[in-house]
């Protein structure tokens, strides 16, 4: 019993000394928060001078709140701010709402993070494809290679452009690539 008490005493004393040590180092401890300095990687870079990047544009669009929430849930923000160049086919909130009931809610669950990331990544292509670029691909019979390895066909019918079956309804130039707003979530065949 006495031995146990002594051990507790040692513990307490040691803590006391350690605390004393720490208080001597107050100044330096402020500069040593290594792990938490940039938790989000490039996505947390503050820059209000450059043209907006893909993530910043999407985050500023009310019609894309579901997509942005999904990107955050899948933790792929830094992919969308990377040097790229990237083309993102960005489904609107209506496009996500058109999926069978419960699909989005289910994908946003933490355990489905991997599936969600795969679905979102199927909407991103390396390279810059604006309207002109998409038409060129169609004219030359080239498919667009997506980040998941899928190839999507571009079909042009008059002014209408469809990529993987989804209709392009707007195109936005960003600092690190192109956003083509689409009316459908592009699901695997």
């Amino acid at each position: 019993m006495k031995a146990v008490t002594s051990k507790i005493l040692i513990l307490l004393l040691s803590i006391g000394v350690l605390v004393a040590c720490n208080s001597n180092q107050k100044e330096s401890s402020e500069t040593t928060s290594v792990a938490t300095s940039h938790p989000k990687g490039q996505a947390s870079v503050e820059d209000d001078v450059s043209q907006k990047n893909i993530l910043q544009v999407a985050a500023g669009s009310e019609a894309h709140s579901t997509l942005v929430a999904a990107v955050q849930a899948a933790e792929i923000e830094h992919v969308l701010v990377n040097a790229g160049p990237l083309t993102v086919f960005a489904p609107t909130n209506d496009a996500f709402a058109a999926l069978p009931d419960g699909t989005v809610e289910n994908l946003l669950k933490p355990e489905n993070k991997g599936d969600l990331a795969t679905i979102l990544t199927r909407h991103a292509a390396p390279g810059s494809f604006n309207v002109e670029g998409l038409k060129r691909e169609a004219r030359k019979g080239r498919k667009i290679y997506m980040a998941t390895g899928d190839y999507l066909e571009v079909v042009v019918d008059g002014d209408e452009i469809r990529v993987g079956g989804a209709k392009v309804i707007a195109t936005i130039q960003t600092s690190n690539g192109i956003i083509n707003v689409v009316d459908k979530v592009i699901l695997p065949n």
């Binding site: 031995a3 040692i10 004393l13 000394v17 040590c21 001597n24």
Partner: peptide, 28 residues
């Protein structure tokens, strides 16, 4: 019993000294 106390004292002294030494070094 006596033996235990002796050991504990030794540990106490040892660890406190070590910690103090560590402190001293941290003080530059």
């Amino acid at each position: 019993m006596k033996h235990t106390i002796k050991n504990t004292l030794a540990v106490l002294l040892g660890s406190t000294l070590l910690l103090i030494a560590g402190c001293t070094q941290n003080n530059g």
